[in-house]
Design a protein around this nucleic acid. Structure first.
Lengths: 203, 203
DNA sequence: TGAATATACGGAACATCGCTCCGTTTAACA
DNA sequence: TGTTAAACGGAGCGATGTTCCGTATATTCA
């Protein structure tokens, strides 16, 4: 995608630049698998056999690199939303299944969920990229479930995704914590809550 | 506690050492309020008017300092557990109230919840201190609620505290995310799940 | 009171980050 | 083949957690 659109207004990138971008993506993917998404940029540069400058020219920040590596998986998750909504028995079932996909994606990438919290301004890009694409998808499923009267109203896509992302943070390195189960409990809570119309549990 | 037990086996600490420990605790507390628990150790040393070495002699790692600063609040939270269990109408009510205390504690300290995830080995001490004291308390309330048939079985104190802590991470800096509400949903999920084995009861 | 000594102190120094800068190399094109 | 703009590499910067060690001092004992 990044390459093709160069045919339009911008002049085509140089061959070595295009090659290095791919080399970097491959190297980053490999390093992320081995050391998690917190791996030093230097390690990725070394693995790719390029200098630091090259990394940062292609991906202005660590978060951009992370985003780029997982872009196709984000896309797959996004596309699964409408499909699940169409094929599942009920919107709530779709919500559960879609959440399962998202959780599965998060917990297999070391530190990805933690990074999504985006406290330090650097990760804001990652935060945004994930959420820009997936929040609308999640929101659509949520609204469908709401309309069907299956869950409580007033939980937005962002709110739920943020909660799920948080629940998954650090889960892969903690055998005593079962993120998938707690996400299941959270989703059950969406359903159980629907009996109260009053939104402010705590004021 | 650190001072008193010196009367036993270990020789009493030097006066300047005792004084500096307190000065450091006060300085750290102030800096944490202003800049969050992620504040640089240097900033705390400067605020206290001591050198870096002094900080690390008293608190071998940043996490130990954080733990020490909030120790009395952790203690208050721990002591509230049995009390709530005794005074609340039902164990589940106690669970909700106790969770409210814990959440209130976490969200008012910038970055504390995030630190609790303890990814980087440094924060393991913080992780442990919080959990060693509070997990049994939480577990007791959970078991009481289980025994009363109010919640699903098989969720341990660690599991729930970890989930709540995660849900609160980064909440204070994200106006679009309401951690307290999502904790409420999670707790509702604990109750909602029981309907699988006991369909009749509705709160 | 005046050494003697263990204890504590201060802050420079080290390792590790993310990220920037700039002199050098090289692909693209006439 | 020569020109030029794009891309490269990696040293360097600033920040951070942590360690080290020479110096200062509280405490003790004569």
């Amino acid at each position: 995608m990044t390459d093709q659109e160069q045919g339009g207004g911008a002049p085509r990138k140089r061959a070595d630049a295009r090659r290095n971008e791919q080399v970097l993506l491959d190297a980053a993917a490999a390093v992320f698998v081995e050391s998690g998404v917190d791996a030093p940029v230097r390690a990725i540069a070394a693995r790719a056999g390029v200098g630091m400058g090259t990394v940062y020219r292609h991906f202005p920040t660590r978060a951009d690199l992370v985003t780029a590596v997982y872009r196709h998986q984000i896309e797959a998750c996004a596309e699964a939303g409408p499909r699940l909504l169409a094929t599942s028995d009920t919107p709530y079932d779709a919500l559960v299944e879609w959440s399962g996909l998202f959780v599965g994606f998060l917990v297999t990438k070391h530190g990805l969920a933690a990074a999504m919290q985006g406290d330090s301004a650097g990760f804001q890009a990652l935060h945004a990229s994930f959420l820009d694409r997936l929040v609308p998808v999640c929101g659509e499923i949520l609204r469908a479930a709401e309309d069907a009267g299956q869950i409580t109203a007033g939980i937005g896509g962002y709110q739920l995704m943020r909660a799920i992302g948080n629940l998954c943070a650090g889960a892969e390195s903690d055998p005593g914590y079962d993120a998938e189960r707690m996400v299941g409990v959270l989703l059950a809570g969406l359903r159980g809550d629907r009996r109260r119309s009053d939104p402010g549990v705590r004021g």
